[in-house]
Design a protein around this nucleic acid. Sequence first.
DNA 1: TTGGATGCAAAGCCTTTGCATACCT
DNA 2: AGGTATGCAAAGGCTTTGCATCCAA
Lengths: 148, 148
Amino acid sequence: MKDVLSGVEEKLRAREFKFTTRRELILKALLENNDKHLSAEELYNLVKQKAPDMGLATVYRALELFQELDIINAIDFGDGRKRYEFGVEVGKNHHHYHFICTKCGCINEVDDDLTEDLESRIGKKHKFTITDHQLKIFGICNKCLASY
Amino acid sequence: MKDVLSGVEEKLRAREFKFTTRRELILKALLENNDKHLSAEELYNLVKQKAPDMGLATVYRALELFQELDIINAIDFGDGRKRYEFGVEVGKNHHHYHFICTKCGCINEVDDDLTEDLESRIGKKHKFTITDHQLKIFGICNKCLASY
DNA sequence: TTGGATGCAAAGCCTTTGCATACCT
DNA sequence: AGGTATGCAAAGGCTTTGCATCCAA
């Protein structure tokens, strides 16, 4: 976690952005909830507990900046808002996918090397220059299945 | 194309929805641009040429209905609006993915059986009940590569 | 000190909704 | 005839932006 923080700090400074208290708070909240795929507003509510005068716009601006620096990615799970997760460079397993229950809407992140060579095979076959991929699996989660 | 139209008509009638002229026009425009991943507004502009008094709300309502009947799927390519493509039941190759150029934003749909057994392997491994999947590949398209 | 960062409120953009009217069955 | 479908305009929800103020370097 410390590594990530100082890594981001470096990245910011390298492009003459400032490593402010607000940005650090936002980053920490993201780190502590890495698995939850927070939306901007959820993140805002979390950070507001530690900095009650935080503005929602600041959260949006920080998220935009972090995306630009390839620190986080935005994903749309179909609920009309963007959700965020850390990118490959920040220790996120590149080979994971999201299992989305179409019944209750829950999102499970799964690490699985089944997708490991998919990207390279696709790259070779089609001569694409691939930088990343994103896989969503839709279905019914075990909890919902059990409640039938 | 005729098959799809009458198939949808059946689906609508089965649930006591009406197969109206407007819905048919919208469906046809979707079919004729199957590969373009139209947004609601793009679709609206197309259909408006044939029915100038068409309202944007009608397009949205038709798209919502078609989704509910599993005729089309909504996808977010990161440009802040939903885009639509036909679902598996309407002749769409289940094993395709989208290649999205992070430089120019172009979207290429690729049919490729490399993903064919991925779903079933994941299903077996994790005991999920899978109904569908969605794969996005990000990178630089050939056109952008060439212009460096 | 100085330009970027932030809070607040307003504006933007895509999408949904209410209501009166028009249309399909 | 009766209820669904539609057009129009207003409202909603998420996100971005303008501006004055504040803060990191």
